[in-house]
Design a protein around this nucleic acid. Structure first.
Lengths: 320, 320
DNA sequence: GTATGGTATGAAACGCGTTTCAGAGCAAGA
DNA sequence: TCTTGCTCTGAAACGCGTTTCATACCATAC
C-alpha cells in the first residue's frame, strides 16, 4: 500500500504539501498540486482513514443507541438521524441494546474510547449518573425530557401531550379511559403515568389498574389488548395508545370481535405512521424527521447543554 | 490524556508489557500485571481505539447499506445483522442510500479507506462491475442471488419462490394472477418477473400488463392498488404481494370497498411480519434473523466467495 | 554437560496523516 | 530603505497502540 510519504517522494514534494493538497489547503502552487494529484492517481493512492482519525482525534462517526431497529418508532428515528448525518458527511454507528444495560455501557465506552464523536441515546436503561459520568468524553444526547439535567436532549413533553389527549377524550364524553404503553420505566412512561393520574384527580375519576396495559410494543400486543378487554366486566370506553402499531392491532382485534370503533371503544394513538393513515386511526403526529435532525444537530454542536422541545400535532381521523 | 507510555512509566515497565496486559497476552508476571492495572486505574487510562485501528489495520466496523431504515424489511435485516454483529463484538456503520448511487459509492469508498472491515449491501443500485472493482479492498456481501458472480451473497431464489407461490395460486383455481413489487430493477425483481412470465407461458396464460403493480413499498401503496383494481373491468382474482406492508394495505382497502378476501381477491404475501399474523395474511416467511446472521458471517470470513441460499416457508392463513 | 524450549521483558520499528514551526521569497505600504 | 504581510514549502514532532526481534533466565531432555 502506498502511503503519503511514497506520494511525496514520487511527486518530489514534502508530505506536508501532499497533505495540503488532499485537504484543499490554500498556498500550494498549481504545479505541485497537479504533480501530487498525478502521483496519487498513478499509484492509486487512498489515504488511510484510521490514520486521519488518530491524528485528528475525531472519527466522523455518531453512535446511535436504540433497543431495536425493526420497530417503526426507532426505525423512523434512525431514518431521521441518518438523513441529517449524511448531509453533513457523518456516519452512523448503530448500537442495538435490546434494553440490556451492558450493551448500553458498551456504547458509552465507545465514546470514552473516542471511537465515536458523539452519542445519541434514543431510549436508555442506564441511570442518570452513569450517563452523566460519561459526559466528559463527548456530547451525549437523549431523546427524552431532560430539562432538569445536565445532558442535552430533544424531547416531547409527554405530560403535556398526554394531558391534551386525555382532555380531548374527556370532552368527547369519555370518563373511562385507559392506556397502553411499552416500557413502564423510562422518563417518557413516567411522565405519561403522572399525566394520567393528574387527569384522573382533576376530574375526580377513579383509578382502575386494569385500564393500564403495559409492555405493548407491536401489532400483536394490540390484538392481545382486545382479548383482555373482552374479559372485562367494566371496559374502558377509550384507550390512549402509545404506538400506531399497537393501535392497528387493537383496531383489527376489535373488528374481529365485534367491537365497534369508536362507539364501543375509542382509540387515540401516537406517531402517525402510514398504517394509521390507512386505517384511519386518530393519532398524535410525532415529527420524526425533525426530531432526528435536532438530535443530530445537538450531537454535532456538542459543547453546551441544550434542550429542544418538539411539538406533536393531533390528527383527527375516525377512531375517536 | 494519559497514553500507554505514561502508564508504562508509572508502572515501571515497558510499553510492550502494558500492551500485553491490555490484550491478555500470556508471559507477563503477576506482579507486573497488577502494577500495570493499578497504574491504569489510577490515571483513568483508556486506550485510544483509533490508534488500535491504525495499528491493526482493522476497525471492527461492518458497513451496512440499506436504501431506508424505516421499512420493516430492511429494519428486520438490520436487526438480524446487528444481533449477529454484537455477538462477535463488531459494530455496525449504517449507510442509508435512498437508492442514490453517490451514497452507495461512499459506502464503497469507506471500504477502500479501510474505515470499515467489510460491507454488506442489502439492496444496491450500482452496477456489478463497479461493485466488483471494490472487492479488492475487503469483503463485500450482497443480499441477492449472485451465484453467477464473484461476489459473496446470501439470497433467496426468487424465481423458485415466485414460481412456487404462483403454482400454489394456480392450484387453488386462479388463472388471473397479478403481482405487486417495489423496485422494477434489481436482481430480485428481475427474477420475479422472469418467474411470472415463465409461469404464464407454462400454463398458456395471457400477459396482462395492468396486473403488475410497481413501486409498491408500504401500506399506503397497498391501498392505492385497490383503488386501481376498482377501476378495472377484468380484475385479477389473485395477487402476489412482495411485502406484508403492502398486503396489509390491500386487505384494508378491500374491506373498505366491499371486496371480499379471498373470494373476490386472493392475497399471497411475503415476509411474515407481525402485521401479517394479526391480519391473517397468507405469506411466505423470510427468516430475517438467519439471513442477517449469514450475511454477517460471510462478512467476517471474508476471503473466499460463497453463496448461501435461504429457504422461505409458506404460511397458510386466510387470504388465499 | 549440552541441546532444546518455554517464560518473561523491553527497545525499536511500524502503521500514517496532520499540524506546528521556521524560513524563504516577494510585493505593497511607510 | 525598511517594515509588514502574504504566499509557498518542508522538516520534524505528534497522536498512540501493536508487533517483531533480540535477549536472558530457567528447566527439562538426552
Amino acid at each position: 500500500m502506498t502511503n503519503i510519504r511514497d506520494i511525496a517522494k514520487m511527486a518530489g514534494v514534502s508530505v506536508t504539501t501532499v497533505s495540503r493538497v488532499m485537504n484543499n489547503h490554500p498556498y500550494v502552487s498549481e504545479e505541485k498540486v497537479s504533480a501530487v494529484k498525478a502521483a496519487m492517481k498513478k499509484y492509486n493512492y487512498h489515504r488511510n482513514i484510521n490514520a486521519v482519525h488518530l491524528s485528528k482525534g475525531k472519527t466522523h462517526l455518531i453512535g446511535v443507541v436504540v433497543p431495536f431497529s425493526n420497530h417503526p418508532y426507532f426505525g423512523l428515528l434512525i431514518e431521521g438521524i441518518a438523513n441529517a448525518a449524511l448531509d453533513q458527511n457523518y456516519k452512523l454507528a448503530l448500537i442495538q441494546t435490546s434494553y440490556e444495560k451492558a450493551k448500553e455501557m458498551e456504547a458509552l465506552k465507545m465514546l470514552e474510547d473516542k471511537q465515536i464523536d458523539a452519542l445519541i441515546i434514543c431510549s436508555r436503561v442506564c441511570e442518570w449518573d452513569v450517563i452523566e459520568s460519561y459526559r466528559e468524553y463527548g456530547p451525549i444526547i437523549l431523546c427524552e425530557d431532560a430539562r432538569n439535567d445536565k445532558i442535552s436532549s430533544t424531547f416531547i413533553d409527554h405530560h403535556k401531550t398526554f394531558t391534551m389527549a386525555l382532555d380531548y377524550l374527556y370532552k368527547k364524553g369519555h370518563q373511562q379511559i385507559g392506556y397502553t404503553i411499552g416500557r413502564q420505566t423510562g422518563t417518557n412512561s413516567k411522565q405519561r403515568e403522572t399525566a394520567y393520574k393528574d387527569f384522573l384527580e382533576r376530574f375526580a375519576l377513579r383509578y382502575e389498574p386494569s385500564y393500564i396495559f403495559t409492555s405493548r410494543f407491536n401489532v400483536e400486543d394490540g390484538v392481545k389488548v382486545v382479548e383482555n378487554l373482552l374479559d372485562m366486566k367494566n371496559r374502558p370506553t377509550a384507550l390512549l395508545v402509545t404506538s400506531d402499531q399497537v393501535a392497528a392491532g387493537i383496531l383489527t382485534g376489535c373488528r374481529e370481535n365485534g367491537l365497534f370503533v369508536p362507539d364501543d371503544l375509542a382509540i387515540m394513538s401516537f406517531d402517525n405512521q402510514p398504517i394509521s393513515k390507512v386505517m384511519h386511526i386518530t393519532t398524535l403526529e410525532i415529527p420524526f424527521v425533525e426530531v432526528g435532525k435536532k438530535l443530530f444537530q445537538q450531537a454535532l454542536n456538542g459543547q453546551g447543554v441544550s434542550h429542544e422541545e418538539v411539538q406533536v400535532r393531533l390528527i383527527e381521523r375516525q377512531t375517536v
